[in-house]
Every structure is written in C-alpha cells, then in structure tokens.
C-alpha cells in the first residue's frame, strides 16, 4: 500500500547518488542494496530503455512488505559507479538480459506460412533460429538495430546490421 509520502512522490524521478550505492549478489539470485544506510535485501535491476542504452537509466526496484513493487531509485549512468559496483551490476544485467548477438547471417528460409529459419553465427555459436510470425518477431527497432525473438522465447539482436558482411546484409535485405 502506498504511504502518504509515496503518493505525493509518485511522479518524482529519484536519481540515486552512485557514491552511496552498495550492491551485492544474494543467494536469491537477485541483488541487495544498501543505499545511504538503508537496506534493501532484494533488488531487481531493470534497464529502462534497453534498446537505446544498456548502461544508463537503470531502475532498482524492490517489493515492500505488502509485496508491491516499489522503486528505490534510478541510476542515471552506471559509469558513475566505482569499478566493483559497476562489475556487480553489469554482471547481473548481462545475466538478466542475456541475448546473443548475431554476427553473421548465412541464409534465411521462408516457409510461406509465417515462419522463417535464419541460419546465423552468434556470440553463442552457430544457430538456426526459428522465428514464428516473423513480421512481428524479426524486426528493425531502428534503421540499424535488428531484434529477433525465436519460437522458444530466446532473444537475439544485431546492433547495426549495416556493419555485417556484405553477404549477411544482402540476405537480411529482403526481411528487414
């Protein structure tokens, strides 16, 4: 339940002072936070704009006693954290947002039933990605950024398809 103060402060963006942040990993798989002496035993970190920036505007949320989600605050730029804190947060975010990057596209087969099979090289090895409803799940978020969600819910990305080799670009051309 929201307290009186929380209701009034709901519209305020609480930017955290990176010098006061102490994050650590817990056995629950989440993080714990000590911020300026206040303890948050279970914190989930979220990239507020995951497609635009991976290290800025990181929201730290916790559940209150009523099991309602509350935001402890937002880290404006992870670069302001000290190296150890940066490492802890970066490791957690890399795990949470684990997403192999597509580095090469060999071919794309369209079965004419809404699915495509994309043979790729990714940062996690060679993989044929089966994409169902491809016009929804194989899409360009910007002119450069390709975002793929496969039939099993795994996600892949390519930050800039124009930096791929010529063959990959020509294979992708028809589908992007």
């Amino acid at each position: 339940m929201q307290t009186e103060t929380e209701i009034y402060e709901a519209d305020r963006l609480t930017l955290l002072d990176c010098d006061k942040i102490k994050l650590s990993r817990t056995k629950s798989g989440f993080l714990s936070l000590n911020y300026d002496g206040r303890e948050y035993p279970r914190i989930d970190a979220t990239r507020l704009m995951p497609f635009y920036s991976k290290t800025t505007y990181i929201s730290l949320c916790y559940e209150n006693e009523e099991k309602e989600l509350r935001e402890a605050g937002v880290i404006k730029d992870m670069a302001d954290l000290d190296s150890e804190q940066y490492r802890v947060l970066e490791e957690y975010l890399s795990y949470k947002y684990y997403m192999p990057e597509i580095t090469k596209v060999y071919n794309i087969r369209d079965n004419m039933q809404g699915s495509i099979f994309v043979k790729t090289d990714t940062t996690s090895g060679e993989k044929t990605i089966c994409v169902k409803d491809w016009y929804q799940n194989f899409r360009m978020l910007t002119d450069d950024y390709l975002y793929v969600c496969d039939a099993e819910g795994n996600k892949y990305f390519c930050e800039n398809i124009h930096k791929l080799d010529k063959k990959s670009r020509s294979v992708l051309e028809m589908f992007t």
Binding site: S28, G29, P50, Y95, K96, Y97, Y98, K155
Partner: peptide
C-alpha cells in the same frame, strides 16, 4: 522469467 534468461528458485 527474466528477459534473456530465467531462474529456478
């Protein structure tokens, strides 16, 4: 369920 991974708890 997280974004790219999930965990068993």
């Amino acid at each position: 369920r997280m974004v790219g991974t999930s965990m068993a708890q």
